[in-house]
Design a protein around this nucleic acid. Structure first.
Lengths: 157, 157
DNA sequence: ATTACGGCGATAATCATTATCATTTTAGAA
DNA sequence: TTCTAAAATGATAATGATTATCGCCGTAAT
């Protein structure tokens, strides 16, 4: 953890930004909730537990800054809010998401699934790919099971 | 065009919705600007040219309705607004986008690039894919050329 | 003709995000 | 260490997209 904080600190310094206590607290919250997809409000509430004096605007500013530095990715699942997702260590590409349309659960996929597709896009469309966003919408394992269970209960229908 | 309007009319009727003049005017605007990615405000202004009495709220309501019926897809490129994109005739899948980070141009790709990837997701993660969103961010052909031109002009640097 | 209801337009309300501004903190320079 | 300019912060106002409300209208069935 400290290692990753240090790394982010260096990234900030390289652009002559500082790792202020507020920024550090925000980064720690992101690290501690790496598997979630927190909104700015979520982050704000969590940071407040450790640093109650922080303001919402500062959280927004910090998330925006981290986003510019590509430390986090700003994503949007179609509900009205932006969510912030820490890039994995040394991750070249943005990871992918599986969003369940039943329960809303979001699962992450780290594997690079798009290598071939990117080659096609670059070759066939002459488009120089810098990043991508891939989200699948569908039914997660858990909800599939529940659907099966529900249909066997109501077999009379 | 009339054929597609008819089809949408039937889709509405099948859920006991009506194709009112306002809804028809909105659909026509979408059909006439099929290659664009209009925001609700954009649609509103265009519909107003034909039907000046229409209200913004009605446009939002209509777009929401069409979205539920899967006649349009609601997409989000990270600027603060939702955009609405007509599904192609008989398109099984949502199409993909290439967004240029230089000039903001958006190109569409109709080809199904994700067949193999979806198989992996279904097989390896047990996730039942219903739909997907794929957007590449990068540099479009035009901006690539301009970058080359600019660098040859400034070769002294 | 009456009524019930879906749909409408105008506009107020909401909610996430951004801008403003006075104050505080910080990193060097003196 | 003290001073100073720039950067950062917190509180809050402003913005802007979207949604909710509400009174009214047109239609279709009674």
């Amino acid at each position: 953890m400290e290692h990753r904080i240090d790394k982010i600190k260096k990234q900030l310094h390289s652009q002559s930004y500082k790792l202020t206590p507020q920024r550090e607290a925000t980064v720690r919250v992101l690290l501690e909730n790496e598997t979630d997809h927190l909104s700015a409000e979520d982050v704000y509430l969590l940071v407040k537990e450790k640093a109650p004096e922080i303001g919402l605007a500062t959280v927004y500013r910090t998330l925006e800054l981290l986003s510019e530095l590509k430390v986090v990715d700003k994503i949007n699942f179609g509900d009205g809010v932006s969510r912030y997702d820490l890039r994995k260590e040394g991750a070249e590409h943005f990871h992918h998401h599986l969003v369940c349309i039943e329960c809303g659960a979001v699962e992450e996929i780290e594997d690079d699934l798009l290598g071939d597709v990117e080659k096609i896009v670059e070759g066939q469309w002459g488009f120089e790919v810098k990043d991508h966003r891939l989200t699948f919408h569908g039914i997660c394992k858990v909800c599939q099971k529940q659907a099966v269970a529900a249909s066997s209960t109501n077999e009379s229908n």
